[in-house]
């Protein structure tokens, strides 16, 4: 069984999602649930911390694509941080760096939201 854990925490006005383990077609619905919860709570500023994510397939990438526009329409965004090289390479293959912001550290991603007001 694929091990996957997702955790949600607040850093100021920003929601940080920690993803851990293997994000595939089996586990992607758990991440969708978190995004749905954020929409209900009208929390649109999101940083996803990939520090402990070992693996991602297109099913996982699709979750970010499905929610990013709604976040941006509400003056928020989905920003990425702490991504390992093997995971980043998959995002890169699909052209994500054109459309999403990637940061080395979670702090930078969170601060970016406060810079934007």
């Amino acid at each position: 069984m694929a091990e996957f854990n997702v955790n949600l925490r607040d850093v100021g006005s920003v929601s940080v999602i920690d993803v851990k383990g293997y994000l595939d077609a089996h586990t992607a619905p758990e991440l969708e649930n978190i995004f749905n919860k954020l929409l209900v709570e009208k929390q649109f500023k999101v940083v996803v911390n990939f520090d402990e994510l070992k693996y991602i397939s297109s099913a996982g990438l699709g979750v970010f694509m499905a929610y990013v526009e709604t976040m941006r329409e509400n003056k928020g965004d989905i920003k990425f941080s702490n991504m390992k090289e093997n995971v980043y390479n998959i995002f890169d293959l699909l052209g994500f760096p054109i459309l999403y912001e990637f940061y080395k550290e979670e702090k930078e991603a969170v601060h970016k939201f406060s810079d934007q007001g």
């Binding site: 397939s57 297109s58 990438l61 699709g62 979750v63 694509m65 499905a66 990013v68 526009e69 998959i90 293959l93 699909l94 052209g95 994500f96 054109i98 459309l99």
Partner: peptide, 24 residues
């Protein structure tokens, strides 16, 4: 072949798999 910008606009989340397979 998926165009990420189009996908983004249409909120389409499928079709990336085959593209990845070819690349990999």
């Amino acid at each position: 072949e998926p165009d990420l910008r189009e996908y983004y606009k249409q909120k389409r989340i499928g079709g990336l798999g085959m593209f990845l397979i070819k690349k990999l």
